[in-house]
């Protein structure tokens, strides 16, 4: 175990990072997010270094998914700013890719794996035009990268959970982005899929991409990722895995010392919805 910095140091280090660097693919400043007026993320500050694999870890209900959803504008922010290479999300959108949680869609939907991957190309194709051969080939090669080419014409409900996850990954690859957000890609997948995802992540890194992954398996964090954000309603610590991924920080993230903060969030929710 490396000698870990004390909480004050790591937090101060965080605060003194340059804000809104044009190099940083993602900089979050003073972001607070509330669900039904209940704060789920308090005052998050984070600058993602370029060309890294970054994990977001934390206990259930810590706001991991919320963090990336609010960066992407899927959940409104109560306050704070998010910038991508110094630009707003709208301006930078074409360079951002997204893998939603697998459970968020109906896998009985009548499309094939290839159709789903082609959806990643839609923004390049534009309104009303059909998917051309060129884009289909691109989608096929993305399926190839996740080892799913032979399943291209399979209807998605006939794929296993891991295969469905790989289809989602392929769709994100088809977006040809520079920054990827992945929501729990490793959740409930088989060993083959886990290997395929890790391979894709490493390849993305080789190609100078940045990937931010919501992750739940603490054991694999040091193997798979360069950077880690320890999250529990606020950023407990963030930085390189070797510096930040310490037992003390993990204890702070997962330990029960924050019950009062959670209670406070409840109270804020009650107060602002008017049910005092």
């Amino acid at each position: 175990m490396p000698v870990h910095p004390t909480i004050q140091e790591s937090s101060q280090g965080l605060a003194t990072r340059p804000e809104h660097s044009a190099n940083s693919p993602l900089s979050i400043h003073a972001m607070t997010v509330a669900y039904h007026r209940k704060p789920v993320l308090w005052d998050v500050d984070y600058d993602a270094p370029p060309n890294k694999l970054i994990a977001i870890v934390g206990p259930n209900g810590a706001g991991k998914s919320t963090l990336i959803k609010s960066c992407l504008g899927l959940i409104p922010r109560a306050s704070g700013q998010v910038e991508f290479w110094g630009l707003s999300y709208k301006q930078a959108r074409s360079r951002v890719g997204y893998v939603p949680q697998r459970e968020s869609v109906d896998w009985d939907f009548p499309v094939s794996a290839l159709d789903v991957v082609c959806m990643g190309r839609y923004r390049m194709i534009g309104w009303c035009k059909p998917v051309s051969k060129k884009h289909k080939e691109a989608a096929l090669s993305c399926l190839d990268q996740v080892g799913m080419r032979e399943f291209a014409n399979r209807q998605i409900s006939q794929l296993s959970g891991g295969q469905q996850q790989r289809v989602f990954l392929a769709r994100a690859l088809a977006q040809e982005a520079d920054l990827y957000f992945m929501d729990e890609p490793f959740a409930g997948v088989d060993a083959a899929t886990e290997r395929a995802i890790v391979q894709v992540l490493r390849k993305l890194k080789e190609n100078n991409k940045t990937v931010i992954v919501v992750h739940h398996d603490l054991q694999t964090v040091p193997d798979y990722f360069d950077e880690v954000i320890l999250l529990n309603m606020r950023v407990v610590a963030a930085g390189e895995v070797s510096d930040v991924f310490t037992s003390e920080n993990l204890h702070k993230t997962y330990g029960g010392r924050l019950t009062l903060l959670a209670e406070a969030a409840e109270a804020v929710a009650r107060a602002s919805s008017g049910n005092t």
Partner: peptide, 20 residues
């Protein structure tokens, strides 16, 4: 709008992130 309808019906949050 076949393509657009399919995208929104299948996965609206992805469509939104993708700028549709």
């Amino acid at each position: 709008f076949l393509k657009e309808f399919a995208l929104v019906c299948f996965n609206d949050s992805f469509a939104q992130v993708d700028g549709w």
